[in-house]
Design a protein around this nucleic acid. Structure first.
Length: 889
RNA sequence: GGGAGCAUGGCGGAAUUGGUAGACGCAGCGGACUUAAAAUCCGCAGACGGCAACGUUGUGGGGGUUCAAGCCCCCCUGCUCCCA
């Protein structure tokens, strides 16, 4: 045996990556009439500078989708970009004095190099970075569209303020104890004038159109529906009563989903921030109310509303009249009522709402039952409120009505009598987009004392971020301190005016990047209508479940607004969504000290012990992270095994939506599989097999089959090896095609490739060249999306193309996906399972075309039947053709 | 507390959607090759009993529907996620 070559992925992969790039193989083609377009998109990353396994999984999945679609003849757009504004760059500037822009660009360059090592078929010509002026210019332009449409506005809002860092924080940056993640300071609530986008105008549409998204995971649609949170109820008005018991002019409007319980209202609660609090508080209560408001202002929303936290409040001294029964009840303020939700006021019905119940118990407020469970005695209220539907009592003319009818009847009465009406309420709130940060997209407006808020004229865009800014880390945004930047003449009147110094939430930038890819070099518009309509909506979007709500909801909102502005012609941006699972790795933790131990320091994984103390360690799988010492560096894996092995492993190890447990031994196994393929091709080449001139292509195989069949029409001239080989080849085509259609099942697709390779190892040698070549050719094309480098290399080696040929047209990745030949799947005989009373007792080889009667006869005559029926005739026989016969004695 | 989902060998996971449970792989065991090891190749492998043929049992637990249940229905337990 001659010395065979070795599979050395490191060398060949880089070579192919460069060759593909040189040939422009991944560039999205111009779309012509009749072309079928396919847009495959990964959620773009933040350029931290380090590629981690989660990224790898995401982009490999999308890449396989893109490559399969190309092989199926579609014109594919598969772009990539950078979600490049955000805090880490600014923190680097504060901590190390580097320029955020250069820092980000360096990270982008290094991450792009890491991505290139994976062999992704990305069209880099369309790359975008949200922090580059040629991109954020259009983010600003789109903001002005929102402004013009009346969908962007300013209002005073209570926000999280870090008194040490002197900046606003997002809710996510405040921990459970109400402290800043950076400074550790207790976060204060501050009222600041902020920019908002009116996403609530689109709440109903965002909810309704979820029905269109059948290609999204049910889970994500449910999460969005819950987030939008539509509830139907009523707004009811309680008239404020003065000290003498006379009705005053003021009314307090509450929102409730349970108008049927209004007769049980024993108090009304306002949010401490409610505008009427100051006006209605009596002199006696003033001090207590002010102290309480101060206390609440230091609490996070989560603290205020958590079920297990005690509810606190104080009466403000004033009273209101219950419009349903005329009773006078007190007004309180309490921490569990939020100003931003509903009307900022609720009626307290302790008997039928759990939080009201807790509150009433705490302050000894009356509890009056007005709903009883249908057909039962009165509920005793030992454990808590009765919050289910029931029948009304103590409710005057509505007594005896079921809750459902009572809701309508009471709401109708309120409308007729002028104390309320039906109201649809959403949980969704307007989107606060202001950030007092430097490294973000500047909001393109100018504040003028005489003209008010003036949009920056679009020809003056972009409003560029100034460079060479000092970062102290204190005192808020550097922009606000840079008078040379913010001091500008008003575009309207020319008088001195002030630029807005807030920047936009980075989610603004990421809400439209997928549109820009369709026309990324356009200098006149963010994208042309033609380009965006020809590529979008995105056919397959792939990303993490952590974006299930915010990014995906904001993007849907943007799409609808831009549609209504006439900029694009579709309702939803992402037709299909795949949320890939996390990449986890084994984690060791000392349960006594709580310390994580690096896997490298664990001597014996079967008996993991702390290297210092000798304590037995806890072992589990967790998301890779630095602090747990369980990260696996993609570069190290590629160095050792190559990108193709990493790709195959990640696809094979778990279904795409499930969490994936990284295991070095499994990676090794995957590498062995690719080595086997290499040797298989080596042996074929040594035998002199060649795929040149269409050898093994469907036409050539058809000719060979026709010549062989001769007298027998069933292809009987094929040897049994050849029949087995062809069956394996076409079974693989069918199975893998199904796995890549509809639901993506990459793990079983890879296992089908393994089965095919196993069958080829057994039958290839004994098969004639035409069939051997058919198998080799098919294997390589089926392999190409998964292990693109190896497939391309073997394609060249086996003569699928010659080195001198134009790569763009002769690459394995420019071939056509094969079609299964149904004739190859046909068998002469099939196994027939014999069951006795539902239990499998054996099987027979029977003619594949046998009819039901024949099968029954064969089963009854079998030894299996004789053994188990002991000569008696079965009382019942069930025949499932092609599967089994069940004999019931 | 409400909602959704999941539970299959030592491990990751398959199962034509009601029809042979455990595909494919990892780890393991046995054998071949080798002075030896690695690599490679061949074979075994749910559990229990048995030399074996084979039998019993088996998809978190309990019940039900059915000729037939991992899959459908009811109850329970445990885990995960979302919302409170």
């Amino acid at each position: 045996m001659s010395e065979s070559s070795r599979y050395q992925p490191q060398a060949l992969e880089v070579g192919w990556q460069q060759a593909w790039a040189g040939a422009g193989l991944h560039r999205a083609p111009e779309l012509g009439p009749g072309d079928e377009a396919f847009y495959a998109l990964s959620m773009f990353p933040y350029p931290s500078g380090n590629l981690h396994m989660g990224h790898v999984r995401n982009y490999v999945i999308t890449d396989v989708v893109a490559r399969v679609q190309r092989l199926r003849g579609r014109k594919v757009l598969h772009p990539m970009g950078w979600d490049a504004f955000g805090l880490p760059a600014e923190n680097a500037a504060i901590e190390r004095g580097v320029d955020p822009g250069s820092w980000t660009d360096r990270n982008i360059a290094s991450m792009r190099a890491q991505l290139d090592q994976l062999g992704l078929s990305i069209d880099w010509d369309r790359e975008v970075a949200t922090c580059h002026a040629d991109y954020y210019r259009w983010t600003q332009w789109l903001f002005l569209q929102f402004l013009e449409a009346g969908l962007a506005y300013q209002k005073d809002a209570t926000v999280n303020w870090d008194p040490i860092d002197q900046t606003v924080l997002a809710n996510e940056q405040v921990d459970g104890e109400g402290r800043s993640w950076r400074s550790g300071a207790l976060v204060e609530k501050r009222k600041l004038r902020q920019w908002f986008l009116k996403i609530t105008d689109y709440a109903q549409q965002l909810l309704d159109d979820l029905d269109q998204l059948q290609g999204w995971p049910e889970r994500v649609r449910t999460m969005q529906a819950n987030w939008i949170g539509r509830s139907t109820g009523a707004e009811l008005q309680f008239t404020v009563v003065d000290g003498d018991g006379n009705n005053a002019d003021e009314r307090i409007t509450v929102f409730t989903t349970r108008p049927d319980t209004i007769f049980g209202a024993s108090y009304v609660v306002l949010a401490p921030e409610h505008p009427l609090v100051a006006a209605l508080t009596t002199v006696e209560q003033q001090a207590a109310v002010e102290a309480f408001c101060d206390l609440v202002s230091r609490q996070s929303e989560q603290e205020r509303t958590a079920d297990d936290k005690p509810k606190r409040g104080v009466p403000i001294g004033a009273q209101v009249r219950n419009p349903a029964n005329g009773e006078l009840i007190p007004i309180w303020i309490a921490d569990y009522v939020l100003a931003e939700y509903g009307t900022g006021a609720v009626m307290g019905v302790p008997a039928h709402d759990q939080r009201d119940f807790q509150f009433a118990r705490q302050y000894e407020l009356p509890v009056r039952q007005v709903i009883i469970p249908e057909g039962s005695d009165e509920h005793a209220y030992e454990g808590g409120a009765w919050t289910e539907a029931g029948v009304l009592i103590h409710s005057g003319r509505f007594d005896g009505l079921p809750s459902g009818e009572a809701k309508e009847a009471i709401t109708a009465a309120a409308a007729t009598e002028g104390w309320g009406q039906e109201k649809v309420q959403f949980r969704l709130r307007d989107w606060l987009i202001s950030r007092q940060r430097y490294w973000g997209c500047p909001i393109p407006v100018i504040h003028c004392d005489s003209c008010g808020v003036v949009p920056v004229p679009s020809e003056q865009l972009p409003v560029e971020l100034p460079r060479d800014v000092a970062f102290s880390g204190k005192g808020g945004s550097p922009l606000a301190q840079l008078e040379s930047w913010w001091s500008v003449p008003c575009p309207c009147c020319g008088q001195p005016a002030r630029r807005e110094t807030d920047t936009m939430d980075t989610f603004m930038c990421s809400s439209w990047y997928y549109l820009r890819y369709s026309d990324s070099s356009n200098t006149q518009l963010p994208f042309s209508r033609e380009a965006v309509n020809s590529w979008l909506p995105v056919d397959q979007y792939v990303g993490g479940i952590e974006h299930a709500i915010l990014h995906l909801l904001y993007s849907r909102f943007f799409t609808k607004v831009l549609r209504d502005r006439g900029l694009l012609g579709f309702d939803e941006p992402f037709k299909r969504l795949l949320t890939q699972g996390m990449v986890q790795a084994i984690t060791y933790k000392n349960p006594l000290s709580g310390k994580y131990i690096a896997p490298a320091d664990v001597a014996d994984p079967s008996d993991p012990r702390d290297p210092v103390t000798g304590d037995v360690l806890e072992t589990f799988f967790e998301k890779m992270s630095k602090s747990k010492y369980n990260g696996v560096d993609p570069a190290a894996v590629i160095d050792r095994y190559g990108a193709d092995t990493a790709r195959m492993f990640i696809l094979f190890k778990a279904p795409p939506e499930k969490d994936l447990e990284w295991d070095d031994a499994d990676v090794e196994g995957q590498f062995r599989f690719l080595q086997r393929l290499w040797r298989l091709a080596d042996a074929a080449a040594e035998r002199g097999l060649s795929l040149a001139d269409g050898s093994g292509a469907p036409e050539a195989v058809m000719v060979a089959l026709a010549a062989n069949s001769g007298a027998s029409a069933d292809g009987g001239a094929l040897s049994s090896d050849e029949q087995e080989l062809r069956r394996a080849v076409h079974t693989a085509i069918q199975a893998i095609s199904e796995d890549l259609d509809g639901d993506y099942q990459f793990n079983t697709a890879v296992s089908e490739l393994m089965k095919l390779s196993n069958a080829m190892a057994s039958h290839l040698e004994a098969s004639r060249p035409v069939f051997a070549c058919e198998a080799l050719r098919t294997l390589l094309i089926l392999l190409a999306p998964f292990a693109p480098h190896l497939a391309e290399d073997l394609w060249l080696k086996l003569g699928g193309r010659s080195a001198a040929d134009d790569l763009a047209s002769t690459s394995i990745h420019a071939q056509l996906w094969p079609t299964a030949d149904a004739n190859a799947l046909v068998r002469d005989t099939v196994p027939l399972v014999i069951q006795i009373k539902g239990k499998v007792r054996g099987s027979l080889e029977v003619p594949a075309d046998a009819d039901k009667a024949t099968l029954e006869k064969l089963a009854l005559e079998s030894e299996i039947a004789a053994k188990w029926l002991e000569g008696k005739a079965p009382s019942r026989v069930i025949v499932v053709p092609g599967k089994l016969v069940n004999l019931v004695p």
